[in-house]
Design a protein around this nucleic acid. Structure first.
Lengths: 410, 410
DNA sequence: CGTACTTTGTTTAGTAGCGGCACAAACTCA
DNA sequence: TGAGTTTGTGCCGCTACTAAACAAAGTACG
C-alpha cells in the first residue's frame, strides 16, 4: 500500500463546525450513541464518526465500543457516547448570605468535587470571593484536573456589560460592587486557567435546569425561585439565557400580586418579593422567625413537619394564590412552554400542585397558555452547575479554539 | 483559448450560505456598498463580490457601478448596492375593524402598490379574507410583478401552531376562527404563487419597525400600540419575533396599571387595555365618542386640535401615567434596549415625552433600565410591511431554494 | 500634472468541511 | 447458516469559502 502522506490526515481534518453542536448534544445527554448523534446533527454517519473521534482525541468524551445490550433492536449495536469523566472540569463558585461554596463540574453537569465554606458575612466582596476562589484552587490541586474556566453565581442582578452587582442587599455588599472584575482578578491571581464569568444565581439555576434538569427540552423556559429573602426569575430562550440589554431582565420580585399588601422597599405594596418569600410565609403562618438558621430553611422545615397546622395551611394557600397571580402575569407576557420553581416556591408547588396550577390557569388570559406545565427544580446545587455552564460555554461553542489549539487572539 | 468547461462556473457557484445574510443586510439598508457588505458579513472581498453578483443575477438587488460622489473619502469609490425595485414583491394584507387593505411590498419594505378597501364588518372571515386576497391578486395582475408569497396582519392574537384567531373581539368573528388556514386557502385559490403566512398586527408592526423603522439596530425591541380598542405588545429578540410557545406572548393588555380602575372584560380592574386605549382617552377627556369615525381617529384628532383644553390635558396626563406604569412593569421583566409606541400611545408620547419617560424611569427598579429610549413608530402601514416581511422571510433565509432553484421538497 | 497612497474589485489557486457512495462489521431473526 | 438490518469507515468529489496577487479608480500632495 503505497499510502501517500495525506492519509495521515484522514480523521483529524474532519469535523470542525459540527464539533461544538456535537459536544453540546453529548453534554446535555441528547446523544447517547453515534447513530443518534448522526440524526441530531443532520449529518452523515461519516461526519458524525469523525466528529466523535476528534472529541475523543480532545479528551472530552469517550466512545465505548461496548458489547452492551442493544435490547430488542436489530442491526449492529451502536457504540455508546459518554462524557469523559476524567476530562477537564470547570470551577464553579457560589456566594450567598450564609456563606459560599466551590465545586469542580465536569461535562454533563456532574459535580466532581465540592467544598462548602462558611464565612461570616463580610462587607468586602474581594474577601469573600478570594476565599471561594482559593477553595476552588485547592480542589483543582487535590484532583489534578485541567480547568477550562471559572463561573460565579451571585445572589444579585448583575448589570451588563459592566458586571456589577446591583442589589446584593442580603450580602451587605455595597451596591454596584464590580463582582465580575473582582472574581476574574482573583481567578487570575490564583493561577487558574481559562476565562472567568459571573451571573445571577437564579439565571444560572435556570440554565442548569434547562440543560440537565427539569427544563430539558423546553424551548421557552421560565424559572422563578426564592432565596432566603426575595424572589428571582430567569428566562431561557432557545437554549440561551435572556438577560435583557442591561442584564436586568426577569427582575420579577416587584410584580404586584396584592394591591392591598405589605409595603415593599421598592415603594410599592404587595410585591411578589414581600408576599411570597420565606419571611412572608413565616409571618402569615404566625411564627416568629428565629435567627439561628436561614429563613428559607425555617420555612421549609415548618412546611414539611406541620403541613396540617391551620396557620401553616393558611399561609400555604395564601402564598400559592399570590404566587399564582404573579406567574399568570408572567405567562401572559412571556408565554413560556414550561415553568420551573425553586426555593420555597418549589415547596409550595409540592404542597398543593393542583391549587397553584388552577390559579395560574384561571388568571391567564387564554386557557391554553394557562395550561403550561409547572415543575419543581430537580438538580442539586443548580446555581453551581449553572455557573459551570458559563465556563463550559466557550468549549461548547468551539472546542478546538477553547482548548488551546488555534488560539483565538494570539 | 482552450478554456475548460469548468470556467463557465466561476461566478454562479460562489456564495450560497452567505447569500441569505447578505440579502438581509441589503434589505434592511445596512449594506449600502460592497465594502460595507464585506465587513458586515465578515468574509473576504472576493466572497462578498460573488454573493452580490449572484443576488443581482437572481433579480433581487442591483449593483450600481455609479460614479456617485464618494464625498470626502479616499480610495476607489465603492459600487452602490440597492434593492432591485423592479424585482419580485410580497403580497401583504391587513384586516381591521374598519375594513381591509392589500399591498405589494418589495425588498427594503417599500410599498409598490396599495389597494385600500372597505367592507361592512362581516362576521364571516372567509368573506373578508377572500376580498382582501382578491384585491391583492388584482394588484399583481395590474403590475405584472412576480410574487414571493403572501402575509396577513390580523388584529388578534394568533395561536400557534394552529393559526387560529383567539380574540378577534372587534371584528365580530368567531373566536378560534382558523384565519391562517382560510387565508392560505384563499391565496391558493387566487392562483398566487408562494407560501402564505399570518401574524398578529402589532407583532408584525414591531417586526417592520425593527427592520426598516425606529427599531433598526435594536437587539431587544419592545413595541406597544393601541388599535381602535385595546392594547397590543410585541417583542423582537435578535431580529426574530418572540411569539412564545403558543403565539400568546406579549398579551400586555391586561397588565394592571390602576388597582382602583375601570372593570375590564377579563374580570380584573384597571387593565392597560381599558385604561389607555382611545375609548379611555375620550371618556377621561369628557367627550362622547361618536359613531362616525374610528375611536382612534377621534382621539387623535382631539389630542391634535385641542391639546390645551383642560379635559384633554387631564386625560393626556392620566393616560401617560397609566401607560408609564405598564411600560415600567414590562421593562422590569423584559429589559429591552428600546421601546416603540404606536397608535394612540404614539400620540401620547408626542404630547409629553418628558412626562412619559419620567414615569417609566421612576417606576423601573434600576435607574439604568428606566433610561431605555422610548420612540414613536416611524413607518406608514407598519403592520402591512411586517406582513410582507413574513412572506419575504424564506427568501431572506435561503434565496436560492425560495426562488425556485433547488426545490426544497420535490 | 504626475506620482504616491488608499481603498475597492477581480482573478486564480488553494482548502476545510461536508455529502455520497460503496463496502465492511456486528448484531437479530428464522 | 444465511438473509436482513443497522452501524461504522474509507474514498472521492463538491461547495463555499480564504489567501494573495493584481488591477482599477479615486484622493493627496508635490
Amino acid at each position: 500500500m503505497n499510502g501517500k502522506a495525506t492519509t495521515t490526515r484522514t480523521r483529524l481534518d474532519r469535523g470542525r463546525s459540527a464539533l461544538g453542536p456535537a459536544l453540546e448534544l453529548v453534554h446535555t445527554g441528547r446523544a447517547p450513541t453515534r447513530a443518534v448523534l448522526t440524526a441530531e446533527l443532520g449529518v452523515t454517519r461519516a461526519t458524525a464518526g469523525a466528529v466523535a473521534a476528534e472529541l475523543e482525541a480532545l479528551g472530552l468524551i469517550r466512545v465505548d465500543s461496548n458489547p452492551g445490550a442493544a435490547a430488542g433492536s436489530q442491526g449492529r449495536p451502536s457504540h455508546r457516547l459518554a462524557v469523559d469523566e476524567k476530562g477537564p472540569v470547570a470551577l464553579a463558585a457560589q456566594v450567598h448570605a450564609d456563606g459560599f461554596r466551590a465545586a469542580l463540574v465536569g461535562l454533563g453537569g456532574t459535580i466532581v468535587a465540592t467544598a462548602p465554606g462558611c464565612v461570616t458575612v463580610s462587607a468586602d466582596p474581594a474577601q469573600v470571593l478570594g476565599a471561594v476562589v482559593d477553595a476552588g484552587a485547592a480542589l483543582l490541586r487535590e484532583t489534578g484536573r485541567r480547568c477550562v474556566g471559572a463561573g460565579l453565581a451571585a445572589p444579585s442582578a448583575v448589570a451588563e456589560p459592566e458586571g456589577t452587582a446591583l442589589n446584593p442587599l442580603h450580602l451587605a455588599w455595597p451596591a454596584g460592587a464590580p463582582v465580575r472584575e473582582i472574581f476574574a482578578e482573583r481567578v487570575r491571581a490564583a493561577g487558574i486557567e481559562g476565562p472567568a464569568f459571573t451571573g445571577n444565581d437564579v439565571n444560572l439555576a435556570a440554565l442548569a435546569e434547562h440543560r440537565h434538569g427539569a427544563g430539558r427540552g423546553a424551548r421557552d423556559l421560565l424559572c422563578v425561585a426564592t432565596g432566603h429573602r426575595g424572589v428571582g426569575g430567569a428566562l431561557v430562550l432557545d437554549g440561551r439565557l435572556h438577560t435583557g440589554s442591561a442584564g436586568l431582565a426577569l427582575e420579577v420580585g416587584h410584580l404586584t400580586v396584592n394591591p392591598e399588601g405589605r409595603p415593599c422597599h421598592c415603594g410599592s405594596r404587595g410585591c411578589l418579593d414581600v408576599e411570597t418569600d420565606p419571611l412572608a410565609f413565616l409571618t402569615v403562618a404566625g411564627r416568629d422567625p428565629g435567627p439561628e438558621v436561614s429563613l428559607l430553611q425555617q420555612a421549609r422545615d415548618l412546611l414539611r413537619t406541620s403541613p396540617d397546622d391551620p396557620g401553616v395551611r393558611a399561609a400555604t394557600e395564601e402564598l400559592i394564590d399570590r404566587l399564582g397571580l404573579g406567574l399568570a402575569g408572567l405567562v401572559n407576557i412571556l408565554n413560556p412552554d414550561r415553568i420551573i420553581l425553586g426555593g420555597l416556591h418549589r415547596e409550595l408547588l409540592h404542597a398543593d400542585p393542583e391549587r397553584l396550577r388552577a390559579v395560574v390557569a384561571d388568571r391567564s388570559l387564554w386557557g391554553r397558555s394557562g395550561g403550561v406545565p409547572i415543575l419543581p427544580c430537580t438538580l442539586d446545587h443548580n446555581s453551581l452547575v449553572g455557573a459551570a455552564e458559563l465556563a463550559w460555554q466557550p468549549v461548547l461553542d468551539d472546542p478546538l479554539s477553547a482548548l488551546g489549539r488555534e488560539p483565538a487572539t494570539p
